Amino acid sequence: MRKGQKVRILRTNQIATIVEVELIRKSGKVHRYCHLKMDKKPDLWMDASELGGLVERCRITFHDDRGQELYFDVERDYRKENLSITLTGKNPENLNEHHGINIMMAEMLCRGFKTYK
């Protein structure tokens, strides 16, 4: 983490800018603390372990007993307030050839995203 970098406060998902970084010894260990500037709130100091990037990614895999796999790659961009989902498959590569419980579960997940929004 460096000065001027935009970060996300993990607890609240608010975006802040790092003003300065200091190493502080606490209980015999060295911790990295960041001085953060936020839009409408007073500045605050936070441990670097409580901060994260502006983009989070995860992969959700549906795997059945025939070796078919479906992958949902989910990416959330906090700066743009955007959630994107990419669906890919394996064995077979063509998504139209997938059938069975894994495709049914993937459909249920998609419906859940739709109702969540």
Rank of each mutant, 00 (worst) to 15 (best):
D65N: 13
Q68I: 04
L87D: 02
F62N: 08
G53W: 02
D73Q: 06
R76T: 02
S49C: 11
G53D: 12
D73C: 07
H99T: 01
D77W: 02
D65P: 03
E56K: 13
H98V: 02
L51M: 14
N82F: 01
H98G: 00
Q68C: 02
G52R: 15
V55F: 05
C58E: 12
V55Y: 03
R76P: 00
H63F: 10
F62W: 12
K90W: 03
H98N: 01
M46S: 15
E69P: 01
E56V: 08
L70V: 12
E97C: 01
A48T: 15
I60T: 12
D65L: 14
F72N: 05
E50N: 15
W45Q: 05
D64C: 05
N82P: 00
D65E: 14
E56Y: 11
F62R: 09
E69M: 13
H63P: 03
E56Q: 12
R76S: 03
E75C: 10
L87E: 04
D64F: 06
T86K: 06
N96T: 10
L51V: 14
V55N: 08
L83H: 00
F72V: 05
L95P: 01
D64W: 09
N96E: 13
L70S: 08
R76N: 04
R59P: 06
L54K: 11
E69W: 08
V55H: 05
T86D: 08
L95K: 05
I60K: 10
H99A: 04
N94R: 04
N94I: 00
I85Y: 02
D64T: 09
P92M: 07
H63A: 12
H99N: 04
I85A: 02
E93V: 00
G52P: 15
N91Q: 10
W45T: 11
D77A: 09
